[in-house]
């Protein structure tokens, strides 16, 4: 099993200008590692839809890679999203399924099929050309630089230890990514992406 730190710290070190969408049990740990303008915490929103939201971002920003750190309980809620992602042809989407086998932030109740469901096989069956499953930290951190460079959609299942994150709310004493309202955060990300896109256009066509 991989700890959350072993999952997130190498990713935070390697991340450059990708959009990173987090949800549920990884929101706070990622928020402690990263305050990048292209981070978005799908928290206090609708459980099960972080991967859908990431797909929308990937389709709107095809020149930029999008990383979604989804949970296994969240993935089970919208398994059809595997099919939707492939159908949409989102080659810039890297979908992580953080498999801790529980609904962590509500108290680690087991998810249906815990330990038996093969998310990578489901993704392959839906048409993902590249799927990976990691159970140990070293092979994961070794493979990560290549995973981040692959054409997608890519599905990376990471079997992690149980965490103990309590329920989330958006308030001033939370990690920075939870200090703004969802509406404010959505506008902050949109502005940052539009600004980056405009800068890229200026660079591409000088004069």
């Amino acid at each position: 099993m991989i700890t959350k730190s072993q999952l997130l710290e190498p990713l935070a070190r390697l991340r450059t200008d990708q959009i990173v969408v987090t949800t549920m049990g990884v929101v706070r740990p990622w928020g402690r590692l990263s305050a990048h303008p292209f981070d978005f915490a799908s928290a206090d929103s609708a459980m099960g839809h972080a991967a859908d939201l990431a797909l929308g971002l990937a389709l709107a920003q095809p020149q930029r890679r999008v990383i979604c750190l989804n949970g296994d309980g969240s993935m089970l809620m919208t398994l059809g999203t595997f099919v939707t992602i492939v159908q949409a042809g989102a080659r810039n989407l890297l979908l992580f399924v953080v498999e801790n086998a529980t609904y962590e932030i509500t108290g680690n109740q087991p998810v249906p099929g815990a330990g038996r469901v093969d998310f990578a096989a489901m993704a392959r069956a839906a048409g993902f050309a590249r799927t990976f499953t990691f159970k140990e930290a070293e092979p994961y951190s070794t493979a990560l630089p290549d995973l981040l460079a692959l054409d997608g959609p890519v599905c990376v299942v990471v079997r992690t230890e149980h965490g103990h994150e309590p329920p989330m709310s958006r308030r001033p004493d939370e990690v920075p990514c939870l200090q703004r309202s969802l509406a404010e955060d959505a506008r902050r990300l949109r502005a940052a992406l539009l600004d980056a896109t405009a800068r890229r256009s200026e660079t591409a066509s000088p004069g």
């Binding site: 609708a46 929308g56 389709l59 959505a186 990300l189």
Partner: peptide, 11 residues
């Protein structure tokens, strides 16, 4: 959710 992501991405 896809529509929300599209809007955040500038679409």
């Amino acid at each position: 959710a896809i529509a929300a992501g599209l809007w955040m991405g500038g679409a």
